[in-house]
Nucleic acid binder design. Structure first.
Lengths: 218, 218
DNA sequence: CGATTTTGTGAGTAAGCACTCACTATCATG
DNA sequence: CATGATAGTGAGTGCTTACTCACAAAATCG
């Protein structure tokens, strides 16, 4: 799924919020949906509650009835998604990494493919995170705790095995993760924000995974 | 120079704007300085003209006397810097690449070192660009024209030579640039925004340059 | 069914926003 | 020194902002 088809992303975010907050009143659902898209398109600070209300077909007061403040609205979108979507998504990536037969390059490539599909599926949310992270320290901590920590713990073990078997030169997991993530996010931004068009995901991933695997051979 | 010491960055931006606009009235200088820092810290949309005026020790009307609108203020900060700083900086990087003796890895490493020092020197501006690029299409075009175009033209030639001499597998310049830039920007963000602290630039650059060079051997 | 809670809103409100304008002070220059 | 241009501002302007509140409709439930 390429970004542009947003219905699945919206549905998934709604499900995540519903799991955190209980059954959602209909207008509350509409607000979540509208806010997600507005924030992704315009950025948090430049989005007015009025425009969210208008897009949701709802009175402005309804937003504040359900979410209290605009800042809370953002957090209550992002937090459940981090907990319900990103973390299990990472577990899935870990399983792929552990189960894939073959060399390190194939493992990395499959992991990247899964992560890229994930970013496409939740494109509006990824966009919001990319935009708000530099100015919103609260999101900082959220990601650090729920995502990076667990991923590094897993990578520590997985990479340790590869190193022990002489297939990988010694490299700390955070460094490995940073470089992999940088390349992947850089590719995602190029493909879906800077120059949308025809991209050959398979070839690009093969290149990046090959770089990592061959470049890190002992 | 690590980010945090901003005096040089401010001075360089002032010089660039002065070159574009002629001698700057004292309060105009103060506005540029304050706006640069405010935008970098809080983001463009979340920064009020009032807060800029306050920080500059200037009446709010002075901002509009000199810059007309808030959007113009941003552009007239960024544009001259792109023209006067980034482009010559790239020429410098190209010279380093062309002149460095030794293998491809050493060339890439020296180029990366220069670009990293550059990003540190103009940290507030880099921060503004990173924050505003996703929501400001005008900056998009600015960067595309003044930076990426020229750099790709140069890389096309430089990489072509390496490929012809059998030191590099065939790779299109945009793809090479994207991967190099992703890793470098990712490192810069990690080091100066996510987890400031002790980082060994030399070792990190050696790792990234080594990855690229070894991973792209024929 | 009656009581209570939940959901939703129109009509505010005070503060903040980008921006204007009439006016003064400063300046270079003929 | 007179003159026109430039630099600077206090006091607004109308509009938008996030947010409140009294009140009504609907759903929930003993």
């Amino acid at each position: 799924m390429k970004p542009g088809d947003l219905t699945e992303a919206v549905a998934a975010v709604l499900a995540a919020v519903e799991a955190a907050e209980g059954r959602l009143a209909p207008k509350k659902r509409a607000v979540i949906e509208a806010a997600l898209l507005c924030f992704a398109e315009t950025g948090y600070a430049a989005t007015s509650t009025r425009s969210i209300a208008h897009r949701a077909g709802v009175a402005e007061a309804t937003i504040f009835r359900h979410f209290g403040t605009k800042a809370d609205l953002l957090l209550r979108l992002v937090r459940p998604v981090a907990a319900r979507l990103i973390q299990p998504g990472l577990v899935e990536a870990q399983e792929i990494f552990a189960e894939t037969e073959g060399n390190l390059e194939a493992k990395i490539a499959r992991m990247m493919t899964a992560r890229l599909a994930f970013a496409d599926r939740y494109a509006p949310l990824v966009r919001i995170l990319l935009q708000e992270l530099p100015v919103n320290p609260e999101l900082h901590g959220l990601l650090q705790d729920s995502v990076i920590g667990g991923l590094i713990r897993f990578l520590d073990i997985a990479l340790g095995e590869e190193i022990a078997q002489g297939r990988l030169r010694p490299i700390p997991a955070p460094r490995f993760l940073r470089i992999l993530a940088s390349m992947l996010i850089g590719y995602w931004i190029a493909r879906s924000m800077v120059a949308p068009g025809e991209w050959d995901d398979e070839a690009e991933i093969a290149l990046m995974a090959g770089l990592l695997a061959r470049g890190l051979k002992p």
